[in-house]
Design a protein around this nucleic acid. Structure first.
Lengths: 246, 246
DNA sequence: TCGCGCGGTTGATCCATGTCAACCAGAGAG
DNA sequence: CTCTCTGGTTGACATGGATCAACCGCGCGA
């Protein structure tokens, strides 16, 4: 369970300098003395209940958010109701970067479970980034990483088959859980089959069937949202080995 | 033809302040006095022949690039040879942002025609962005816009049908040509059907057939790479009106 | 304890797009 | 001017994933 993350709740005023998510988050790579200066930047916290939006398409942009506790999805809606999930975010990851370009948010950010974020007022961030080189650089890296991640998703959606997409998704989740000190091989997904499907450009039935096939083949053990990865390397091979080659 | 773009070739030392792409490019929104300070930033020009790479996956990252003349595609390759085109870039647009996150480029940037870019050394850009607020802000906007654009592509790839994707692609091209002072309704595409297909997650035959159907229905006139948009609004409706509504 | 509802699974069938193949047209080389 | 090559179009057929439908089971509230 995510609740077992050892979050330091004491010393709420010292935001970043006391936070154990430091090396996953914005202050990564900054020197200690600079990190202390962030404590003034990261003012408020905000709790978001499961299924509630942190922000919505069209909301005025004034801050970005670092996830302290919980997880989110971001999605884009078409007028006719179609939804595209554009990402799932975990602790330490940054939300809201989409808003910088037009000063309006261009997607919805919805909590997948009861969550808490650090509010980082954007004007203040730009100000501080002008004097703290390490912050400037790390912020640019975070944005760039998002762009690179998006390219990976395009690869998924544009060039991979259903099972490859799901395999890539599971490996990605595993890797991110690992980075947060959780098991690489077993974890609870916080999103539904439908949300996974939307993210991967598939229908929920297809996602469900792919899970079942993976289970039949001994690649993973699936029990609803609880996943255990049994054969990591075979999953990995699945992604690159275009089976319908030629 | 793109060659008819009225590029000011005189005064090559004054890079940005003399450039007519200004309002499409990095200096947008900056005050005149600041724009002059960019002229020192944007040092070298680089010419890239058609089909040649500006940079490749794995190349060390040290600069970003603003397109002065011509156009590019960016793509990601999978080990088994599958290619995903992640974007097409036109004059004034910025290339290379993918490299910031790991200091290594994570995609290939290939010229679609003989092109020329302004080389913007990244270290120098960060330095200047710390003193020129307008530059900092505009740079962030450029990155954010790229993220938003990527979300749009995910929507395309994950939730739209072949004809919707092509319609969205054409409208997007039209809009970008317009922003550059070209006709909104007729233009030459610089990329092949295969590249369009890769971008849209379709095979070239499917792209070709969709073009033919659009032509039959009087939406566009197609002659190889030469496109004339006849019924803009019907194209637009095509995107939102999920025909297989349910 | 029971009943309800949501999320998940599975089966049968359909269809949009992929695959394979033939052919065509324009551009560049000799 | 013809040959060749690359990119584009079109047709016939195959198939992966969507659609539609039934059913299952866990968690929750009464």
């Amino acid at each position: 369970m995510m609740a077992t993350v050892p979050v330091t709740v004491a010393g709420l005023k010292k935001a970043c300098s006391q936070c154990n998510l430091l090396e996953l988050c914005l202050p990564f790579g900054m020197v200690d003395s600079d990190i202390h200066r962030l404590d003034e930047l990261v003012g408020a916290r905000r709790k978001i209940k499961r299924q509630q939006p942190l922000y919505r398409t069209g909301d005025p942009f004034e801050a970005i958010y670092a996830i302290r506790i919980g997880s989110f999805k971001t999605d884009v809606l078409l007028e006719d109701g179609r939804e595209q999930v554009t990402g799932f975010q975990m602790t330490g990851e940054i939300l809201g970067l989409d808003g910088i370009s037009t000063e309006l948010h261009s997607c919805n950010a919805i909590a997948l479970e009861d969550s808490e974020v650090c509010v980082i007022p954007y004007a203040k961030l730009e100000e501080l980034a002008r004097v703290i080189e390490g912050l400037q650089h790390q912020f640019h890296k975070v944005m760039s990483r998002e762009i690179v991640r998006d390219h990976g998703v395009m690869m998924l959606l544009g060039s991979m088959r259903a099972e490859e997409r799901l395999a890539a998704f599971l490996l990605n989740m595993s890797q991110r859980f690992t980075a947060r000190g959780f098991s690489a091989s077993e974890f609870h997904l916080r999103m539904t089959r439908e949300e996974i499907g939307s993210y991967l450009g598939l229908k929920l039935e297809t996602v469900s069937r792919a899970f079942s096939r993976f289970q039949d083949e001994g690649l993973v053990a699936v029990q609803q949202k609880y996943i255990r990865i049994i054969d990591n390397s075979r999953l990995r091979r699945l992604i690159q080995h275009q089976p319908s080659a030629r």
